[in-house]
Design a protein around this nucleic acid. Sequence first.
DNA 1: GATGAATGAGTGTTCATTCAT
DNA 2: AATGAATGAACACTCATTCAT
Lengths: 207, 207, 207, 207
Amino acid sequence: MELNDKQIEILHVAEKLFAEEGFDGVSVREIAKLAHINIAMISYYFGSKEKLLESIVLHRIGGMGLRLENLLNEDKDPISKMDEIIKFYIIQVNANKHIHQIIQNEIANKKREINFESFTELKKNNLKLLESIVKEGQEKGQFKTNINVALLPPMIIGSFLYFNMNKVLYADLFGLKSEEDFENYIKNELTQHIQKTVKALLTYEKY
Amino acid sequence: MELNDKQIEILHVAEKLFAEEGFDGVSVREIAKLAHINIAMISYYFGSKEKLLESIVLHRIGGMGLRLENLLNEDKDPISKMDEIIKFYIIQVNANKHIHQIIQNEIANKKREINFESFTELKKNNLKLLESIVKEGQEKGQFKTNINVALLPPMIIGSFLYFNMNKVLYADLFGLKSEEDFENYIKNELTQHIQKTVKALLTYEKY
Amino acid sequence: MELNDKQIEILHVAEKLFAEEGFDGVSVREIAKLAHINIAMISYYFGSKEKLLESIVLHRIGGMGLRLENLLNEDKDPISKMDEIIKFYIIQVNANKHIHQIIQNEIANKKREINFESFTELKKNNLKLLESIVKEGQEKGQFKTNINVALLPPMIIGSFLYFNMNKVLYADLFGLKSEEDFENYIKNELTQHIQKTVKALLTYEKY
Amino acid sequence: MELNDKQIEILHVAEKLFAEEGFDGVSVREIAKLAHINIAMISYYFGSKEKLLESIVLHRIGGMGLRLENLLNEDKDPISKMDEIIKFYIIQVNANKHIHQIIQNEIANKKREINFESFTELKKNNLKLLESIVKEGQEKGQFKTNINVALLPPMIIGSFLYFNMNKVLYADLFGLKSEEDFENYIKNELTQHIQKTVKALLTYEKY
DNA sequence: GATGAATGAGTGTTCATTCAT
DNA sequence: AATGAATGAACACTCATTCAT
């Protein structure tokens, strides 16, 4: 689907609003107003409000094509690769906060049947990359063998999402006064904490 | 606030619907229909749709008063206590899936200003318990010292929530055919995975 | 109809509210709240909201029984009597502003069919008194003969009502800053103006 | 604001209904039904029911721009001018009975805060014209000097309004069987009565 | 005699979408 | 290709009244 400038503008405005107020919490009037377009345009361009949501998802995922593949081929040890991939996960989810918020809401939502297959595919691909890195680490004897790799993304992304959802609480706990402080905490402390946790798990001896 | 049977019935029906379809995705008509009551009753009993949501939250949190305190006083080693507390976290969040779903959505939602202070208090209390266990473990030399305890709940709850939100994906990956299978996986594999991860982090040597 | 204290309290509260916000602009809940009684009491005591209005009218008119008759028998000249009766008219309408406001609204209102016969009777009686005074004045040669007495009350009461309805405008024009100022203006200037006008008409030579 | 035919149709229907049954006594459904339009149109065209009322007022007042100014410049004596202006007042208020009824109700009503400034301006302008005529008459020695001109409109309009509000009573008293009879009585007897009264006051000697 | 609980009908407003142009 | 006008359906909420107690 070819999208013109106005259409992309609509997608961006709608994405922000859907993330902030939920699909049902936003009216097409609001979107039209903020995007400076006629109300009828949304139905006209995308068919319906629901199809607009699908377009947002497709548009975003299309732009998320992972450049993770490169990591694999580089000449680094698996632990560095794991650090990189975790950092990448967090940066990516953080950069696409809005669409993640929307998708998580919609997946939980039984009301609409929106096709998130492409998103699932993306997750599966990412999982394969993770698996290959873990495997490499195991072959090199750096990682333990009894690792359930599929449960790593829930830990990585879940930690981030939960941290983010409880922004007010954690900003309070850690004295993060500005948006920038919060972003920096994610970029540094939180990322390192998750990296450390994953490495601990992967190299963990006892029990 | 004293609640009669019908009011509690409404709360339960509304809780389920709000979790499944979002606050804005549910009409009071739907709630009234499923709860077999007159539409006017919702305003009559709770004042408004928003106040109904607040009542749901209060009602649930009131019943969530943690019995974690007992764990602390028992004569177990910190590692067992940590296992217990993680198990407890997951059981509790799982049992209160709906309200967690609702609250997470609403916290992210800029539209409504609902008072979740009691929920935040609960989180802070739980955090204190975690801290005392970690401290105990550190004093006994079992846990490392550089632990950011506040980031443990995001990991524990976040992992569970993300796993749960992507039910379809993980049911597919792990061949979980029934709801029961899924619940069992959470109860066993996922819980153990998280316990293992936390213990790894707490006792982790290198880096 | 015997009325107990609570019922009279309801009548007074309702009268004020009906006058200020119109019959349809007031809910029985508001009345019940301000009168500190249960909502059901209004239907219970008066039958319905409409019947409450009728009760208000009857209650007020019952208490308005004119003591104008005395004026006629007194040994004053017709001009003084006319001054007295005009003063009386204005005082009475002013003292019963609320019910007059209500009745004027309701008479204009095609919706409800409320029996204002007693009110009409009152008007007719007052008119007879006016006629006898005018007749007396005519017989004594003080008043002209071609007087349409029935059009005097519209002038007297109409002037007052219009003045009162446009309170803001006239308070502004005449620099009446307080409620008291306004009341005094009615009691003095306006009353005298109307008295003067009526006397002018009654004794007017030309045309 | 440009109004199309349908919008004007709505204004007229609503004006009539508001006058007859009061603002709160009319539902938008009734208006929509009588105006043969969709309910949503009222919000769509005017924003809300209250704004519809404001539109009615503005629309009417816009069309009421007095052509009284011409009277002043004509080469007639002040008494004829006064007769003309009174006639004009009554014709105008009578022709705009509905809006006058509405506005008088709403001015008395504490509930809504509708801007009647334009209406007040109109009144003040009319008052100025009256004042200039009276002054002219005084300068020519035809009118007395101690005249409170601001109290003339209450007398003129108030008399008419009260007469009109008590239509049933006066139709009975004067044997006015048809609407036409009533209109004629206003046009002739009532108008002359008021003219006579005003002239009496203006030229009145004694007291 | 008095009332808290309850309700069906109705309120004004907003919704996503359609249609003629 | 694009849009202003329009709409039926749905929205949350309030209404006056009833009724069991």
